[in-house]
Structures are given as structure tokens and as C-alpha cells.
């Protein structure tokens, strides 16, 4: 592992946080399997599963044929046999061949079996843009999965969360869609990986930066962008509270509503297209539950409702520090 021990913990990238978390999950439970394209010998195209096959063997870290429907479909069967598969989808844009199994089978199996069958599986999806990739490698497709009852959906934004959240997701008896912000894979932080470190709940939102004037809700890759925006705004006297949602379904409304009731203003930020993006759901819920606390309508700073553009245009598509601040200014102007 490319990690450095320190007195307070281990310095990990977000990617290696997942690696370490998976390793620990596999050590703790022999039923945990890792499967996907190139996850074994290569360690995944992002090296997230690096070293796992060497240590846990080919039966537990499975290089699958190149067929996403097959990967998720067979993972369902393994889960039915009592295993806990962790599936890697190589890139966001390649999950669609597996979409049928995820929505028709994974999401519904517990309900349609009247509780006789559980599918404790994790589907990891490296998501989002900002890496100059070719088409189909930069998408934010969380809404499809958020709209499928029976799935749980989470998004990590830093190494500490990636380390703990992947373990919690693996331990969950419901299926979990696990979004990993690929442009943050290499961001490092010191993580206390000791068993005594008590992680937050998997779906618990966290106030990543406290503030007074406006709440910015975000998740995954946008958390860093929003924290940078808050830092810049702070220097100009605007106090932004950044809420990292972490759990998207279920959504920790308690933390979010408390923040909005305090600030009276909310800007939701995500990379995904605006129309029917997660911001729409948050906006509806906040409007309903925090109506009398709101000083301004809930605003959204998001990707546009276009196909993800060619990479030379992606900086214009993706919310950045300036667009977040523009949204904040508009919220404050009401």
C-alpha cells in the first residue's frame, strides 16, 4: 500500500481508502467477494482493488468477462448463495448494460420475495467528470438509482469516508450503490484506521464547514469544490455552511433541515444534469419542511441538462468555485 503511517493515523488517498476498507471487510468476512473487469491482476483501472487478488485469491477477487449485465447478474446469484459481492463497474457510463438487473432484480428482490431473500451487495461506480476523459467516462447518473426503491445510494468525498463507508456498505444487508468521485481518487488525508475509531453512520450527513449565511448541500466530487468556494467567500465576509450529504438514499434530512433552518438559504450543488437531478428532490423536501425558515427559494448549481459534453467543454458544464459563489450570491440577493 502506498500509505504512510503517522502518529494519528494513516495517510491515504480516497482510492486507497477504499482499498484498505475492502481489505478489512474481506478479512472480517470470508463471504465478501470483489468482482469486476480488471479488478484482479491489474487491481482495477484506478487500482482501487490493487493487491487484493494476490492476498485473497482468484476465487474471492474475480476478473470477470467484459459484460456488465453478466457481472451484476452473477453477483445476484452469488448473493443468493450467501456471498456478499462487491461489484466494480469500471466507469459510470458503463453501468447501463447492468441497469436492468439493478433496477428489476437487485432493487426488488427483498420485496418480491416478501422478505425471504436479501441481496447484500455493493455496486461501486466511479463517477463524475473533470478528468478530461472521452465520452461515457464522466457521467453522474445517481438519479436513476435514487429513483429505484429498494436501493441505497451513498457518495463518498474523502479518504476517511471512503475507508469507512465502503466497510459499512459491505456490512449492509440491503444493496448499496456506492459512488466514488474519480477526480478525487488521488486526494490524500490522514485516516484513523484503528478499530477503535468510531465512524459516522453510513447515511449521516456532515457539516463539513460551519457557516451562518447560506447552506450549500453537496456530495461526492462537489464537496471539495464547495469547501473551496466557502473558503473564498469567507475571505469576503460571506459565511457558507457546507453540508456533505454522504447518504443520498436514505437522505439525512435532519442534518440538512437543521442547517437550512439556521441559515434560511440553500444552494444544492451537483455535477449531474439539473432536470430531475437530486437537487430537485432536495428542493422539494426543503421547501415543504423548512418553508417558514426560507429567505430565498432553493437554488441549484448543477451540470446542464445536456449530454455530458466533449472534454474541452466540461469545465463550462461542471459547477466550479465561481458558479457555486454565483449561486450563493443569487440566494443572498433575495
Amino acid at each position: 500500500m502506498t500509505t504512510t503511517a503517522s502518529s494519528t493515523g494513516t495517510r491515504l488517498t480516497l482510492a486507497k481508502g477504499i482499498t484498505a476498507g475492502l481489505r478489512r471487510a474481506m478479512e472480517n468476512d470470508p463471504k465478501v467477494l470483489v468482482m469486476g473487469e480488471d479488478v484482479g491482476r491489474l487491481g482495477g483501472v484506478f487500482r482501487v482493488t490493487e493487491g487484493l487478488q494476490k492476498d485473497f485469491g482468484e476465487d474471492r477477487v474475480i476478473d470477470t468477462p467484459l459484460a456488465e449485465s453478466g457481472i451484476v447478474g452473477t453477483a445476484i446469484g452469488l448473493a443468493l448463495r450467501g456471498y456478499r459481492p462487491v461489484v466494480e463497474i469500471q466507469f459510470d457510463g458503463f453501468v447501463y448494460p447492468a441497469f436492468d438487473h439493478i433496477t428489476s432484480q437487485v432493487a426488488k428482490m427483498y420485496a418480491r420475495s416478501l422478505g425471504h431473500v436479501t441481496l447484500p451487495m455493493v455496486i461501486r461506480i466511479p463517477c463524475g467528470g473533470g478528468i478530461g476523459a472521452v465520452e461515457h467516462h464522466s457521467e453522474s447518473n445517481e438519479s436513476y438509482f435514487l429513483h429505484s426503491a429498494g436501493l441505497r445510494v451513498v457518495a463518498c468525498s474523502n479518504a476517511e469516508d471512503s475507508y469507512w463507508m465502503i466497510q459499512q456498505a459491505v456490512a449492509t444487508d440491503d444493496p448499496v450503490i456506492f459512488f466514488e468521485p474519480k477526480r478525487r481518487y488521488h486526494d490524500k488525508m490522514v485516516v484513523d484506521t484503528s478499530a477503535s475509531a468510531a465512524p459516522r453512520g453510513l447515511y449521516e450527513a456532515v457539516v463539513a464547514r460551519p457557516g451562518e449565511h447560506v447552506t450549500v448541500a453537496c456530495y461526492g466530487p462537489m464537496v471539495k469544490t464547495c469547501l473551496q468556494a466557502a473558503e473564498a467567500a469567507g475571505q469576503e465576509g460571506t459565511s457558507i455552511e457546507v453540508v456533505d450529504l454522504r447518504g443520498l438514499n436514505p437522505l439525512d434530512t435532519e442534518t440538512l433541515f437543521a442547517s437550512v433552518r439556521k441559515t434560511g438559504r440553500l444552494v444544492v450543488v451537483h455535477e449531474a444534469s439539473q432536470f430531475l437531478g437530486f437537487g430537485a428532490e432536495i428542493s422539494a423536501q426543503v421547501t415543504q419542511e423548512c418553508f417558514y425558515h426560507l429567505e430565498a427559494p432553493v437554488l441549484r448549481v448543477t451540470g446542464y441538462s445536456t449530454p455530458y459534453p466533449a472534454s474541452k467543454l466540461e469545465e463550462l458544464f461542471l459547477p466550479d468555485l465561481d458558479r457555486v459563489l454565483d449561486g450563493v450570491d443569487r440566494a443572498l440577493a433575495y
Binding site: 453478466g70 452473477t74 446469484g77 452469488l78 438487473h101
Partner: peptide
């Protein structure tokens, strides 16, 4: 005997995954 599966063909992959589990057992 697994539940009836209406989406045509889905069950074949579930079966193969189950068989992969049998091998691991």
C-alpha cells in the same frame, strides 16, 4: 426453487452466479 422471473433471461445469470457460489463452497 427461485422465484419466477419475468424479465426474459435475467434468471440465467442469477443461476450462473449461484453456481459460482456452489463452486466456492
Amino acid at each position: 426453487f427461485h422465484l419466477y422471473t419475468i424479465v426474459i433471461g435475467n434468471q440465467a445469470l442469477h443461476a450462473v452466479g449461484y453456481a459460482m457460489g456452489v463452486q466456492r463452497d
